[in-house]
Simulated scan of single mutants.
Amino acid sequence: MHSDDLTPPATVTHTLAAGQCLSLQLRRGDRLWLAQGRLQARPPAQWLGERLWQPVAVWPEGHQDRVQDAGEWQWQALSAATLRLQRRPGLSARLVAWGAAWAKGVRARWPGRPARATSPPGTWPR
């Protein structure tokens, strides 16, 4: 289990000067938002037939994206830029949140249910 799996999603801000590069390892489901500037983005390389292909895109200010391809992403700032990253919570954190939501929903369905009566000593539980 990773320590990342227990922490809630937090927004990390990366500030880049013009020409500066940034490389990050991202997981599927992480969210990106370019708050300021322009970036040249390179998602992880992929095989296309028998060739390795790495697409390149220019992101304008305000661009938002959800990571579909996990791996190493690279950016180069075409102008001064501010990139915000919100990590997707790990599997254990999502399972705990799902369990808590399920339990809350079960309790909500029976709000006035009386407490279970105890069985007298020496008898089978009810």
Rank of each mutant, 00 (worst) to 15 (best):
R116I: 11
R107V: 07
W75V: 01
D5M: 15
A101W: 09
Q46K: 12
L78H: 06
P43V: 01
S92R: 14
E61Q: 15
V58A: 06
W124F: 11
P8R: 07
V58W: 05
H63R: 15
L16T: 01
L52T: 03
L16C: 07
P125R: 07
R88P: 00
R27E: 07
P89Y: 05
R126D: 08
W124S: 10
T118G: 10
L83R: 00
V96G: 06
G37P: 11
G99D: 14
R38K: 08
V56Q: 15
G19M: 12
R107F: 02
L32R: 03
D4Y: 14
D4K: 15
W102V: 13
R42Q: 10
A101M: 07
A115Y: 01
R113D: 11
P114N: 06
T11N: 01
R42S: 00
R109P: 00
P120Y: 07
L6D: 05
E61C: 13
W59K: 05
P121T: 12
S79W: 04
H63I: 00
G71Y: 03
L91D: 12
Q46N: 07
R66P: 02
T123A: 10
H14L: 09
P114W: 02
L78Y: 09
Q54S: 10
V12Y: 04
A115F: 03
M1T: 15
T15A: 14
W53F: 15
G37A: 05
S3T: 15
L22N: 07
R28H: 07
L85C: 04
P55G: 02
R38A: 04
A115V: 02
Q64L: 04
A81Y: 06
D30S: 10
P125N: 02
L34D: 00
T15M: 10
G112S: 13
Q86V: 14
E72H: 11
G71Q: 11
S92E: 12
D65L: 15
R116V: 09
P8Y: 05
D5L: 12
A93R: 11
W98M: 06
L6C: 00
L78A: 08
L16A: 05
T7Y: 09
R116M: 10
L52W: 07
L34G: 00
E72T: 11
V58K: 08
T11S: 05
A108T: 08
L48T: 07
G99W: 14
A57E: 13
S23R: 13
L48G: 02
P55L: 07
D4Q: 09
L22V: 08
G112A: 15
A35W: 07
R116K: 10
R109G: 08
Q40T: 04
T11P: 06
P44A: 08
A108W: 13
W73V: 02
L85Y: 02
W75L: 01
G122Y: 08
P43T: 02
A117V: 10
L39G: 06
G29S: 01
L16F: 01
S119R: 13
S79M: 06
G105P: 03
T13I: 13
Q36H: 11
E61H: 11
G37M: 02
E72P: 01
L24N: 01
L48S: 14
V67R: 02
R116S: 13
G49Y: 02
P121I: 04
S119A: 15
A80D: 14
R113F: 15
Q76Y: 08
R38T: 06
R87K: 09
